[in-house]
Design a protein around this nucleic acid. Structure first.
Lengths: 127, 127
DNA sequence: CAGCAAGTTTACGTTTGCGTAAAGGTAAGG
DNA sequence: CCTTACCTTTACGCAAACGTAAACTTGCTG
């Protein structure tokens, strides 16, 4: 694992393969997410160093993927989390985006409930 | 709309563009699903005639898509619904499939709850 | 029956999301 | 210094899921 000076637990650093192993994906994928501007790790020399924050971003990416969003959409979504804390000038625009996301998610939740019920019925049908 | 002899409501027939319009997709997509063996409408001459059952299949396809499944996976899933009613010889295999699906769906549901919560927090952050 | 919208097949094009070499740089241990 | 393990960039490849154009047929409709 990446050498660390044991300060705060939140200051852990990760190599690309650390994260790849942890999340069961390839390094190639992680680099691809970077190409697509979804994540942007620090560089120590030429090597990528991932922070705890970066790790969270990666989790968000993977969650988005499980939900069927495209990488471009996922970028939109996680960009919402990185508001400059002061600039809510585009707040209205953001709220719209959020609303659209929520609608999509609520629809998906319905879809899932449907499918789960139908799977139950199927299973019962098999005595 | 497609001419119909007004028998039972469940005997309605649909043209390819009827369904395309209703579900907001292109005819090309529907034909593609047919190429991929996801749906198989009756033919009257060379034209495709879709039954109410076909319509339901299409709904299932689109639901699967919203959930991020590939067309191949969706075919697996809807094939589950078309059991020959008597042949549960492969029942064990089916139950496994169902279990896998359910696990994936439960994970997705978690993902959705997470995202919804985070969207709520984001919205509040915008005072 | 002529016209026109809507349907059909065939087939090549495009985008997304990585896989997979190729060709080499870097850091730590022995 | 040399090996070994891991990292890097560059770039071509590929499957999935349609888009799109071409060229033709069908079948109402005036």
């Amino acid at each position: 694992m990446s050498g660390q000076t044991a300060k705060t637990i939140s200051e852990r650093e990760y190599s690309i393969s650390d994260l790849a192993k942890e999340f069961g994906i390839t390094s190639r994928s992680i680099r691809h997410y970077e190409d697509e501007k979804l994540i942007c790790p620090e560089r120590r020399g030429v090597h990528r160093i991932y922070s705890a924050r970066d790790r969270v971003r990666l989790q968000l990416i993977l969650r988005g993927k499980r939900l069927g969003f495209s990488l471009a959409e996922i970028r939109e979504i996680i960009d919402l989390y990185d508001l400059p804390e002061g600039k809510q000038k585009q707040a209205k625009l953001l709220v719209e985006l959020i609303q659209k996301r929520r609608d999509a998610l609520l629809q998906q939740r319905k879809d899932i409930e449907h499918m789960l019920k139908e799977l139950d019925m199927l299973e019962q049908k098999l005595d």
